[in-house]
Simulated scan of single mutants.
Amino acid sequence: MARPKSYTDEDVIRIVTQLCSDGRKPTGWLIKEALGRGKIASIQADLDRLIAEGKLPEIQMEPSGGSNSELRIVETSYELPVELQDMLSLKELELGKILREMTIGINDKAHAHYETLIAARIRELDAQSDVLAQAKATAELDKRDMEIRLQKQVENNEVFEDQIENLENRLTNSKTEKSDLVQTINQMTDSLSKLTEKADQQYALLDGLRQTISDKDKAHAAMEVKLEHAVDEAKKSKLQLTDLLAHYEVVKVQLNEKSTLLKSTQESLNQSNNQISAQRKENTELTATNRLLEKNLEDAESEIALLHEQKQHLETDFFEGENTKNPIKEGLPQ
């Protein structure tokens, strides 16, 4: 792309007019010297173009009026010999030729100097353009790498989101199972309270039986002869009381075992709650602790399965206890 000119046609016309008024022939060198900028060849080409377009008249340097008057004075004063006039004209022609050649040589040197400067600047610009092209290629490679990394990161984020969704579903299921376990434990607690109330009733009934036995013993001592049949019934009542006491001890041992089992179940449930809370905290660090969370969930599921088994054992024991209490109630006296 050509560089824009640092001068206008009006500047050239103005300087040419000024040089003509000073009696000097306008040339590219003189115009450049007056402007202080531009290239001699370009200025000379613009000068010729302006003359060809008619914006400047053809330059015909005629001697000024002062020089003509002086010549007339010299011619009127004396006349040189023809030989001297011829020699003078030859010397003038030789001197003009020498001056013209000197001017052309100076112009050529200046032109070569400016051409050298322009070539150096062009080389610098080429080097800068090569550096910029390399930087552009490097930037494009970096851009491609960043796009590939960003795509991989987006894919990894999608995988992590799917894993988070699966873990949230598992956590929801664990909460549901936990609520079911809590309901089951509450039911077992209610059943245990009912069993305790029944045991208290049996204790009261046992106290009543003991009081009845003591009364019968007193009546038996007073009425040994009259109440032989009553003595037989009292013996039967003693045997039933012995069986009832033995069964009472068995029921008491079973209640203690069930209470211990209930405590262990409650501790397991607390551990499960702690593990679930730990899993919630670790849910925010899925990128580093995904495997650990899955392991904890599997442990929690196994413990929940154990709790279900323990629950089934407790229900079985409870039903067996109910079945054993019914015959005892049927054997008690009305």
Rank of each mutant, 00 (worst) to 15 (best):
L93S: 15
A288I: 06
L292I: 15
D86I: 10
S237R: 06
Q60S: 15
S268N: 14
E249S: 07
S237C: 09
T17V: 02
G23S: 00
E58S: 07
E315A: 07
M146I: 05
N157W: 07
R37T: 00
E161I: 13
A300F: 00
W29C: 08
T176G: 05
K55P: 03
M188K: 09
L50V: 00
R291P: 08
E62G: 14
I13E: 01
N296I: 08
D22E: 04
D86S: 15
K198Y: 14
N166K: 11
I304A: 08
A305Q: 06
T103W: 09
K91M: 10
G331Y: 15
L84Y: 03
A221R: 02
E101G: 03
D130N: 12
D200M: 13
E165P: 06
N323C: 09
I51C: 00
E53L: 03
L306F: 08
L261R: 03
L71M: 07
I13A: 03
H247C: 07
E285V: 15
D46K: 01
E320V: 11
I118W: 14
N157T: 10
K109S: 09
V225N: 01
Q128W: 02
I213Q: 01
I164C: 13
T196L: 07
D142N: 15
L125P: 08
K175S: 09
L245E: 09
Q310W: 02
V253M: 05
R170Q: 11
T172N: 08
L93R: 14
S272Q: 06
R144C: 11
P57H: 02
G105H: 06
L332D: 00
T27R: 01
I185V: 06
E233K: 10
N156L: 12
Y203L: 14
N169Q: 05
R100W: 06
A119M: 10
E53T: 04
S237G: 14
G54C: 00
V182M: 08
G96F: 13
K218D: 13
D126S: 03
I118T: 12
K263Y: 09
W29D: 15
E285F: 11
Q310H: 07
N169R: 05
V225K: 01
I31L: 00
S174E: 08
K238Y: 11
I43Q: 00
L262R: 01
I164R: 15
N186L: 08
D142K: 07
I59G: 06
R24A: 02
I43H: 00
S191G: 13
K32I: 02
D200A: 11
T172L: 13
W29E: 12
N156P: 08
K295C: 11
N68R: 15
K258Y: 13
S272T: 03
S42P: 03
E58P: 04
A110I: 11
P57G: 01
L269V: 12
E161A: 13
G321M: 09
D145F: 11
L117T: 02
D86K: 08
F318P: 01
Q271Y: 05
I59W: 06
E249W: 03
T260Y: 12
A2Q: 04
M1C: 10
L245Q: 06
K25R: 11
S21E: 15
L195P: 04
S77I: 07
